[in-house]
Each structure stands twice: as C-alpha cells, then as structure tokens.
Design a protein around this nucleic acid. Structure first.
Ligand code: SF4
Ligand code: SF4
Lengths: 144, 144
DNA sequence: GGAATAAAGGATAATTTTGTCCTTTTATTG
DNA sequence: CAATAAAAGGACAAAATTATCCTTTATTCC
C-alpha cells in the first residue's frame, strides 16, 4: 500500500506529534529508536517532510524535530502525498490504462469507492490523534 | 497498491481469458503485445501463474497459454495472492506494528473495513468477467 | 525420427528503493 | 568567539524489483 519510506514517515510524524506536545524537540536518534527505523534513512525522510513544512526542525544543541499546534493537525493524507505522491489517490490500482468514467471496466465503480474511502480516511486522520493511546501505552509504534 | 509484476499478471490473465475463449491458445509474444508488457518479464510471470495452476500452458508448435472453462472463473484475488502474496489482505497498511484487535489504533476499524472491501472486490471479480467489454472494444488493456 | 516451435528455466543486467557514511551548515552555550 | 551539538545534504552501498538474454525441455508436424 505504502512505501517503506512512507510507513516510516507516518510513524515518525505520529511519534513526534506525541513527544513534542509541550514544545519539546525530538532528536533524530530518538525518533529512529522510537519507531524502529534505520537512523540515516529516517534522516532523509524527515528532511523531506521538513522541507515541505509538515514538521518543524531546529539545528544545533537542544535542536531537533517538533510540531507547533497546527502541526498536530497535519493529516496522514498530507504525509502520504509528500512521500509517495498521489498514485494511491488517483489512477487505477489494477494498472489497467486507458479507461475513463464513460467506459468503466466492471470493477471501476466499486474500485473508485474504495479509493475514495482510503483517501477520506487518511484525510480525516491527524497525526496528533494518536497521542492519547500512545500515552496510555495501548498503541506501539515499534515491536516491543 | 500492486507490484508491476502483479499488474501485468492481472492484465495478462484477463487478456488470455478473452483470447482463448474458444479453446485457442495465446502465445507469449501475443500476450506481451496485447497488454503492453516486456516480453521476457511477462514470461516469468506467466511461468509462475502456470506453475500455480491459474493458467494452462502447452509447449511446442501451436502451443501457448489458455484457460479452460473453470479457468475463466479464477478471481483477481487468486492472481494477486499468487504474485504479491497476502500482504494486502492482512496486516496493517500503515506499517504500525504490535497492535491487535483488543488494542486498536484510532483508525483500525475503518482501515480494516476498507481492507476487507478490497479483498471482497478482488474475490468476487473473475478474470473472465471482462470479455464482453473487451470484445466491444470499450475496454483496453494497453494504451492505444 | 528430425526439424521446427514455443514454453520453462537459469543466469545476468538495469533500475528503483532502501539504507549507510561522511562532510557541511546552522544554531546554542559558555 | 570557540566549542559543541544537531539537522541538512552529498555521495555511495546494498537489496529488491523489474527487465533481458540464452539454453533446455516438451510438443507438433512432416
Ligand atoms: S475503469 Fe477499471 S481499469 Fe479503468 S480506472 Fe476504473 S477500475 Fe481501473
Ligand atoms: S490497530 Fe491501527 S496500527 Fe494496528 S493494524 Fe489496525 S490500523 Fe494498523
């Protein structure tokens, strides 16, 4: 469904959202350990997300990644779009080309319905939404 | 959503289902051209599908790939499973590990619902289902 | 049986994705 | 200002996926 980079990206955003809720910053190493991802690869992904403004970052001592209040409202859809592009939201999952609304294949309507459901699920889910469960220790972002 | 191999596989199955409806056989070259896929790669994929019994094949002159009557009833789910495995049908699309039904994350229920819809769509769609549209020229398996 | 034909299979190459390492830039602290 | 800490970025490496080529095996036709 998503690339590895995208999975790490989603998990990292959720992790940072929870860890930085009092304006604290989270270091790369912390994030990588917290979500069980390779550190250097994680760095690349966070760089990209940072460039696109989905997460804030500060260099230097006591620096790191964080989110401001509006940052917590970033949706999973935005993260996915930033990393994997819009392939999942548009186009045919079956790779059947050259079809349009007027000449749909047998599964088009249902397929489109599903695609839209995925889209809307991701669009209505914010990275800050997982905080409570994470604090309760009910949700884990890595294997224990 | 699916790997390239899987997309080619699905298209090829649909193509063969339509081309071989009078017991005719379709050659590799024919399939590859018919669905616009690299020939040698297509060969590997068809070999795998053939080994798993999802498509029939005959060697030698006038040989090729074909489906018998029950073959037309093979579902897209079977094809996907044969090529990409069950990752799409099981497990978490978000790559969040260590969660179970008792400790679901905020999106689990809706996510699972979508996953099941994809599964059931693929399970209820047979490769022979596209024949009519293909014959009418309404559906294309490659860019024209 | 021999020639021709077409899939099966093995080996290898190109590309993309994933992952690592090292240097540079920017900020903080004393 | 100097030392240090941390992200940014460039170059490179490994692994997986996609793609190609060549040989072998099975089948048909003469
Ligand atoms: S009509 Fe069929 S092939 Fe075309 S985009 Fe819709 S589902 Fe895919
Ligand atoms: S509970 Fe959440 S993280 Fe776990 S499988 Fe369900 S959707 Fe994925």
């Amino acid at each position: 469904m998503f690339s590895k980079a995208c999975e790490y990206g989603i998990r990292a955003m959720i992790y940072i959202a929870q860890q930085s809720r009092q304006g604290e910053r989270v270091g790369l190493k912390d994030v990588a350990q917290g979500i069980d991802s390779p550190e250097a690869f994680m760095a690349k992904i966070l760089q990209a997300l940072s460039r696109q403004g989905l997460v804030q970052s500060v260099k230097g001592p006591n620096g790191g990644f964080y989110m401001d209040a509006p940052g917590l409202k970033v949706t999973l859809a935005e993260v996915v779009l930033a990393i994997d592009g819009d392939q999942l939201f548009t186009g045919c999952g079956l790779g059947l080309p050259e079809c349009n609304e007027k000449k749909p294949c047998p599964i088009h309507d249902e397929f489109k319905l599903i695609r839209n459901k995925i889209k809307s699920l991701l669009e209505t889910t914010q990275v800050g939404e997982f905080n409570e469960l994470l604090e309760k220790g009910v949700l884990h972002l890595k294997r224990v």
